[in-house]
Write a protein that binds this DNA or RNA. Structure first.
Length: 851
RNA sequence: GCCGAUGUGGCGAAAUGGCAGACGCAACGGACUUAAAAUCCGUUGGGCUUAAACGGCCCGUGCCGGUUCGAGUCCGGCCAUCGGCACCA
């Protein structure tokens, strides 16, 4: 392979400037108490979702979001902001541990190597991170505070009166352990045998583990849970004020799944017990013709009659062997079994049979429903399957309205004695009031969201700062943090559900009979608060100092992280968990804003050149470092932004990279030329002259467009506009130093190395240019220069373009109309038709309407 | 089924209700060169008309309809693709 001639010497200038930025601490953001802190500067916090440093290194998806934030960070600095733009490592997790199991190499070592690799790769792209703020979730100095935050959660409860988290010491009830925000419960959990651990609902996709795609089964286990459900309402409501994509808001709302309705009690005939159901349609109670319990519902044992016991037991046994996937298969027929018992419909006193069926889930509502075939498709299907009573709905064929149930075509209820004549909304209110007054039920809200299963049976995670004494848990004293995991030879999961840490007998022993918790926290723990640590990463007294927190998170309106960019895959995982922790810490008085991330943007996935998802399987994976070798980091950055809208999914194109690389080379040759010896020197065409009028116009149009486009993250069109400018300047006989100065500052956030080098070269010959490009001010556009004295007017007949004419800027409407009517092409198009109307849009067009 | 996003040239894509296709890729033609690469200049949505050029005309933003002097853009109804949720009562 012969050496490809480089379009400009990026291989020399890129390492040079990266080293210079490091040496000069160019991108260090001082905190309020530090020297060089300028209180006059507004703050801007721009954050990337920090990566898991895998052994494979960066792929092209990482730098997409990172480049966008880097452009914004550099732009805001030039605009005079104090910019917080940090990077760190989310380094606990399965791959490092699995690698350890395979090779025996400790995850600390693998993590260190992988971080070093990631960091050197990120540096090669020229990101302007403040590396002095680097954090690593696996660093004891970091997870000390993860453990500390867990203890704050453990020591809190949710006060339903104030709807906030409060210290457990405020709790007046008898059983504080029953209300803690972190608690232990024996619950059916998602157990993954292959991974040897339990998983959160959010980590299970289609009955398989999100990591690895291994089967997941339901199994009751004692686990640590976080009471995220207490915050369900606030997590939904407070989404409203956030500048997030609607799709992400919808995903979170959907996941939380709030539904309003009522709880209704049905007395069981002949047994001193009630079956409580949750329904969103209490107004349909008159149509309830049977009840269904989930097969796992403990009430089943109490109410089943002797004759039916056998058939109930065999049905339950059949269900138990089924996976969640089989159970929830929508295509299958309804199954169920009769308990022999019946219940009384509280609304009309009618006895109705009680069944069990697997279409009713123990995990939602009360694990029991009232069957209303007239209103619910699933109930109807079940009733038909088993020949249960189905009340005809309004105007069913062959039925008179008198025999029917439901709402008439004018929307009022019939054959529902308490509700007749009411609208659906009125009927719902009326029936709930009636149920409440008569002790049959109450208004209720239910959520799909479950409490967060927070413990894992893995080695490579934060140990819980908890000890057990006489079967009861208690907090480890704060002075003993960080609690480091024991040194282990064998990291393997035990396979039984007992955590690997249980093998470290010495470590477990705490003191006089007390022992340590052996579960570890899930990977999400460290990422729940890293954005806070970035504000004050070296503080060893507090998880974040009050002043830095107030400045970076509280300052400005409305506060929080000003811009957060990352992948959509975290919509219901990281982004929900972090909001939850943030709210707890906010309630406890540690934070100044109720929400962590004010503006969120998701970058779209980059596909392979073949339009498929990049994967080893298709052989279409692009390695960013390979691209940088050939085209340089600036071309790589610009191409990733030029591909298309940031949020959109789009395929990679090497030809596209080449096009952008050509553009950067044109910028280079605008200022540089090769001398006889083949060295690049300042071009003789660069002169201290005023730009021509046409150049000034396109320059100022570019300043305006690029500034606006960076604010809205329309980075592809910002680059287009700079291409237009460069094309215009290339055609100019003399290259004006002042125009080049502006161009370089505009392009600097996108191509920082190239512009830094060119700036330096310019400044050597023309001292007025100014020392360092990173210390320049962003140019302002002059609206007056954009105004033309002659403008083009579009002439239309009936909305169709017929001609264009050039007129003076100050031409009156009447003059425009006259010019249009005098135009030959307009006259041709009008023909003999009468002119009904002439629409004149000043400075734009004239539309002649005939009729 | 429900929720959300997206449909524009050969391709990636642009267009505050006002010239559809900016910018880039690819393709084609030209300049430079012994030649190639690189670079520079030009053409490029489809069709019809014309011997050719100039010009002229028609069609065109997933489909059907509506609002408007004017719709890629707004409204209503469909279709397709992608993503999420899903016997959630």
């Amino acid at each position: 392979m012969n050496e490809r001639r480089k379009p400009y010497p990026f291989d020399q200038i890129e390492p040079k400037w990266q080293a210079a930025w490091d040496k000069d601490r160019s991108f260090h953001a001082p905190n309020p108490s530090e020297e060089n802190f300028d209180p006059a500067k507004p703050k801007y916090y721009v954050l990337d979702m920090f990566p898991y440093p895998s052994g494979a290194g960066l792929h092209v998806g990482h730098p997409e979001g990172y480049t966008a934030t880097d452009i914004v960070a550099r732009y805001k600095r030039l605009r005079g902001f104090n910019v917080l733009h940090p990077m760190g490592w989310d380094a606990f997790g399965l791959p490092a541990e699995q690698y350890a199991i395979k090779t025996g190499q400790h995850p600390v070592i693998t993590t260190r190597d992988n971080v070093a690799k990631f960091k050197s790769q990120l540096k090669r792209i020229g990101f302007s991170y403040d590396w002095e703020r680097e954090v690593n979730t696996t660093d004891p100095a970091y997870y000390k505070w993860t453990q500390w935050i867990f203890l704050q959660i453990y020591d809190s409860w949710f006060n339903p009166e104030t709807k906030t988290a409060e210290p457990i010491s405020n709790y007046q009830g008898a059983d504080p352990d029953g209300v803690r925000l972190a608690y232990v419960a024996e619950v059916p959990v998602n157990w993954c045998q292959e991974l040897g651990t339990v998983l959160a609902n959010e980590e299970v996709v289609d009955g398989k583990s999100e990591v690895g795609g291994f089967p997941v089964v339901r199994r009751p286990m004692r686990q640590w849970m976080l009471r995220i459900t207490a915050f369900a309402d606030r997590l939904v409501e407070e989404l409203e004020s956030l500048d997030w994509p609607e799709s992400i808001k919808a995903l979170q709302k959907n996941w939380i799944g709030r539904s309003e309705g009522a709880e209704i009690s049905f007395p069981v005939v002949g047994v001193d017990d009630n079956i409580t159901v949750f329904t969103t349609r209490p107004d349909t109670i008159y149509g309830a013709t049977y009840m269904v319990l989930a097969p796992e519902n403990p009430l089943v044992d109490q109410i089943t009659t002797e004759e039916q016991r056998k058939s109930i037991e065999s049905y339950r046994a059949g269900i138990a062997t089924k996976s969640d996937l089989e159970r929830t298969d929508l295509a299958k027929e309804k199954t169920g079994a009769f308990t022999g018992a019946s219940a009384t419909n509280p609304a009309n006193g009618e006895p109705i049979p009680i069944w069990i069926a697997d279409y009713v889930l123990m995990g939602y509502g009360t694990g029991a429903i009232m069957g209303v075939p007239a209103h619910d498709e699933r109930d109807l299907e079940f009733a038909r399957q088993f020949g249960l009573a189905v009340l005809p709905v309004v105007q069913a064929p062959g039925k008179t309205p008198e025999e029917s149930i439901g709402y008439t075509d004018v929307g009022v209820a019939i054959n529902s004695p308490l509700l007749n004549g009411l609208s659906r909304a009125e009927a719902t209110t009326r029936i709930i009031d009636w149920l409440e007054q008569n002790g049959h039920g109450r208004r209720d809200i239910r959520y799909k969201l479950r409490d967060w299963l927070f413990s894992r049976q893995r080695y490579w995670g934060e140990p819980f700062p908890v000890i057990w004494r006489n079967g009861k848990h208690e907090a480890l004293p704060e002075s003993e943090l960080p609690l480091e995991p024991p040194a282990l030879e064998d990291f393997k999961p035990t396979g039984t559900g007992e955590p690997p840490l249980a093998k470290a007998k010495d470590w477990i022993r705490y003191s006089d009979g007390a022992s340590r918790e052996t579960n570890t926290m899930p990977q999400w723990a460290g990422s729940c608060w890293y954005y806070l640590r970035f504000c004050d990463p070296r503080n060893d007294q507090r998880f974040v100092g009050e002043e830095p927190e107030r400045y970076w998170m509280g300052g400005g309106k409305p506060g929080g992280v000003d811009l957060y960019i990352g992948g959509v895959e975290h919509a219901v995982l990281h982004l929900l968990y972090a909001r939850f922790w943030h709210k707890v810490l906010f309630d406890l008085g540690y934070l100044s804003t109720p929400e962590p991330f004010q503006r969120l943007v998701n970058q779209g996935m980059i596909l392979g050149e073949d339009g498929r998802k990049m994967s080893k399987r298709w052989g279409n994976v692009i390695d960013p470092i390979d691209v940088i070798e050939i085209y340089g980091a600036d071309a790589f950055r610009c191409y990733e932004m030029f591909m298309g809208p940031l949020e959109q999914m789009k395929p990679w194109s090497m030809k596209g990279v080449e096009g952008v690389s050509r553009f950067l080379a044109r910028v280079w040759r605008l200022i540089m030329e090769e001398n006889q010896a083949g060295e690049w020197v300042l071009s003789g065409e660069v002169q201290e002259v005023e730009p021509r009028k046409s150049e000034l116009k396109v320059l100022h149009a570019t300043i305006k467009k690029v500034s606006g486009d960076i604010e809205t993250l329309s980075l592809n069109t910002a680059i287009s506009q700079m291409m237009i400018l460069v094309n215009a300047l290339t055609n100019a006989p003399a290259k004006s130093v002042s125009a080049l100065r502006s161009l370089l500052v505009l392009l600097n956030p996108f191509a920082p190395h190239l512009t830094s080098e060119l700036w330096q070269t310019l400044a050597e010959k023309f001292p007025g240019v100014g020392a360092s490009i990173t210390e320049q001010r962003w140019p302002e556009h002059d609206e007056r220069l954009l105004i033309e004295d002659e403008i083009e007017i579009v002439l239309q007949v009936n909305g169709k373009l017929r001609d264009k004419i050039t007129v003076a800027l100050d031409a009156t409407d009447a003059a425009l109309e006259a010019a249009a009517l005098a135009n030959k092409k307009v006259q041709n198009a009008v023909g003999g038709q009468t002119i009904r109307k002439v629409v004149v849009v000043p400075k734009k067009l004239v539309n002649v309407v005939t009729g």
